[in-house]
């Protein structure tokens, strides 16, 4: 079954369930999908709506992108060097379980209430998941493959390029997909605290005005953002890890 067909079927089921539940609960608690989606269509014609979407997209893409760019090389290098790993890993084990979200006040103090603090918080939370996946992937590379590679004349840099990176990519993309969900949640949180634009603000604002149809437009938009990111990493994985998708 092609991917888009399964998406159509899944959406149809979700919309039917939504419709059924909303007719039970009443439009005040859960507006029906038709009115939400038609308002979404109207909103899609307004520059203001796109300013919210743009602000949110920028923050999440920048946060996840930064986490990726820093965590992947760092994780791969640490995982490939046992001595470095011995030094670094205790710090990671200690700081990973700390809920980074409680650092928000400090980050706001340090980086102001603009985009930078939001991006940094998203980056910080995603960083650990991606770092740990990359490090463990690099650490678990088959010993015989490493020896064969070295005896073929491969140097350290070539080792990263031909062995460590390709071996780790599938896991890295899986962690980025999972991170997309986390990142959207963090995004909502930071945007509901302070923002002049953003889908989080859009939702909170509609909620404050008791405009539930608009609120659901914001919720649907934020979900779509998460789905898009998730799919993006899935496509990237399929393009770069062809060997994983052969029988």
């Amino acid at each position: 079954m092609p991917k888009y067909v399964s998406y159509i079927i899944t959406s149809a089921v979700a919309l039917s369930v939504w419709y059924a539940v909303s007719s039970q609960l009443g439009a005040l608690l859960l507006p029906d999908p038709v009115s939400v989606l038609s308002l979404l269509l109207i909103e899609a014609g307004s520059a203001e709506y796109w300013a919210h979407v743009g602000a949110s997209s920028w923050r999440i893409v920048a946060g996840m992108g930064l986490a990726f760019i820093i965590a992947v090389p760092f994780g791969l290098v640490v995982g490939s060097n046992p001595k470095l790993n011995k030094i670094v890993s205790p710090f990671i084990s200690m700081s990973y379980p700390v809920p980074k979200i409680v650092l928000l006040p400090i980050i706001l103090l340090l980086f102001g209430i603009g985009d930078l603090s939001k991006i940094i918080l998203i980056m910080l939370i995603i960083f650990f998941q991606v770092f740990i996946t990359s490090r463990d992937a690099a650490r678990n590379i088959n010993e015989e493959m490493i020896l064969s590679f070295r005896s073929l004349g491969g140097n350290k840099l070539q080792y990263y390029r031909h062995i460590v990176l390709p071996a780790s990519l599938p896991g890295i993309f899986t962690s980025m997909r999972l991170a997309a969900g986390t990142a959207v949640a963090v995004l909502f949180f930071v945007e509901s605290i302070s923002a002049t634009h953003g889908l989080g603000l859009y939702i909170i604002d509609a909620w404050g005005r008791a405009d539930y149809t608009s609120m659901y437009v914001g919720i649907v938009s934020m979900s779509l953002l998460g789905i898009l990111l998730y799919e993006f990493f899935e496509i990237l994985e399929r393009k770069t890890c062809k060997w994983k998708h052969t029988q």
Partner: peptide, 13 residues
């Protein structure tokens, strides 16, 4: 040249 028992062929190549 060295050939090991499980060949050491990178599965992604």
């Amino acid at each position: 040249a060295l050939v090991l028992q499980d060949y050491g062929l990178p599965p992604w190549k």
